Amino acid sequence: MTELSALARGLSAPRGFVNAGMAVPAPGAIHLVGGIPAPEALPVAAMASASAALWSDPVAATASLQYSPAPGSAVLRSWIAEREGVDPARIVITNGGMHGLMLAVLTVVDRDATVAVDDPVFPGFLWALEITTRRILPVPVDDEGLDVDHLAARLAAGERIAAAYTVPTFHNPAQATLSAQRRHALVALADRYGFHVILDDPYRELRFAGTDPGTAMLHASDRTIHVNSFTKTLGPGLRLGWLVLPDHLVDPVVRLRNRLDVHTGAVTQALVERLVTSGDGWYDRLIRDAVALYRERAAVLRDHLPDSLETRAPDGGLFLWARLTDDRLDPADVFRRAAAAGVVYQPGEFFAADPKQPGRSARYLRFAYGDRTPAELYEAARRLARAI
């Protein structure tokens, strides 16, 4: 038998996305588990029309079956660059958000370097990080996002990091949006201490309340890597995303992907390019309609949760981060009872940056509402109340 590489042997088993060992859901359980787009929000008909148009055009169809430039389609990059407010030369098309995170990690994080991460954290980033390092510096997330003052204090005390990772808009799982003040402060810290900032931003378009702090101050820095995708808007099945890179990282990222996947599929790029560059505002209408769905769903779930769960009204995104306020209630017991009552969610402990020290996360529950109907969300809240 061929031995596995040390890397393959060392990869951890994924935690979260419902550990089947924790509970057995009742038949017909309502799953509030993943950040999945609403089926009604996905552009099925538009995608079918774009596909038919592509394959009926012999020249375009033939071109889409050929190799793509490693940075991606020039037209699609230009469209993204206009929305991001940057030069198209700074855009690299990726195979979804996780691919973008992997490229970022492999480009700026040396083996066994330390990386500051959100706490609570999106577990997928920790999986990506294992390719180069397991050394992390957990940084608390509060209502204004990553606690930059905490990070600054650790750096002042002598801690050194290769990168800092955060979800700056509608944080997964904690809902928070990194404030404008903290965005400026984080970039200033990166400049001072010489690390890169990896910004994972797939929920940014899904705003239904509040004010957008903007990305201009982030894009202006030569220390930031912005990771985004069409996953939450056009659908995760496309595996299509992009990086906004500082000029000095574009060539290293392209050289790296030449040794990995070479380029993103030209057919997928061609289909999306036809949709978003139609010139009639199609993409913005798609987003507006999706946001209306998520606004309603978030409100239905939050308004009917039991009083023992404390939440903040989300400004956007796909998650509620609910705190179990009654100290007499054990979160693990609540999870088991909820599953038996027919509702499944993500326990907060799954999002602790250090699983051995879940801290505040242990008393939180993450509810994902994007792909559940208002009726299902109302019923889920009712079942939760009964379980608690």
Score class of each variant (00 low, 15 high):
169 T>I: 09
248 H>Y: 11
387 A>L: 07
59 V>I: 14
326 D>N: 15
282 W>T: 11
337 R>D: 03
318 L>D: 06
306 P>E: 07
29 A>H: 02
242 W>M: 04
240 L>G: 02
360 R>S: 13
95 N>F: 00
266 A>W: 06
146 L>Y: 04
99 H>F: 08
197 V>S: 05
311 T>K: 11
99 H>L: 00
326 D>F: 10
182 R>L: 07
117 V>T: 05
75 V>N: 08
105 V>C: 08
166 T>K: 01
163 A>M: 09
104 A>C: 08
230 F>W: 14
113 A>Y: 01
379 E>S: 10
347 P>F: 09
219 H>I: 04
161 I>F: 04
247 D>Y: 04
348 G>H: 02
294 Y>S: 05
169 T>Y: 11
269 Q>H: 05
373 T>S: 15
216 A>G: 08
185 A>Q: 07
371 D>F: 10
283 Y>D: 01
355 P>N: 11
258 N>C: 13
68 S>Q: 14
340 A>Y: 07
186 L>S: 02
280 D>M: 03
57 D>F: 04
331 P>R: 03
196 H>R: 15
37 P>L: 10
238 L>H: 07
14 P>W: 06
345 Y>A: 09
16 G>S: 03
93 I>V: 14
210 G>Q: 13
38 A>L: 05
61 A>C: 14
123 P>D: 06
44 V>N: 10
368 A>M: 12
173 P>D: 07
189 L>T: 00
301 L>I: 03
334 V>W: 02
61 A>W: 13
115 V>F: 05
121 V>T: 15
108 V>C: 10
298 A>M: 06
132 T>E: 14
142 D>F: 06
210 G>A: 13
108 V>R: 00
250 V>S: 01
330 D>T: 05
22 M>E: 13
5 S>Q: 06
352 A>N: 12
134 R>W: 06
318 L>F: 14
312 R>L: 14
9 R>A: 12
65 L>R: 14
25 P>N: 05
112 D>E: 15
42 L>Q: 08
25 P>S: 02
275 L>H: 02
223 R>V: 04
156 A>M: 07
243 L>W: 07
15 R>W: 08
319 F>P: 00
339 A>H: 07
277 T>N: 06
160 R>F: 06
230 F>P: 00
260 L>M: 14
374 P>A: 10
44 V>A: 15
137 L>E: 03
77 R>N: 04
88 P>V: 09
26 A>W: 04
114 T>K: 10
85 G>W: 10
172 N>P: 00
217 M>I: 13
216 A>V: 14
106 L>F: 00
260 L>S: 12
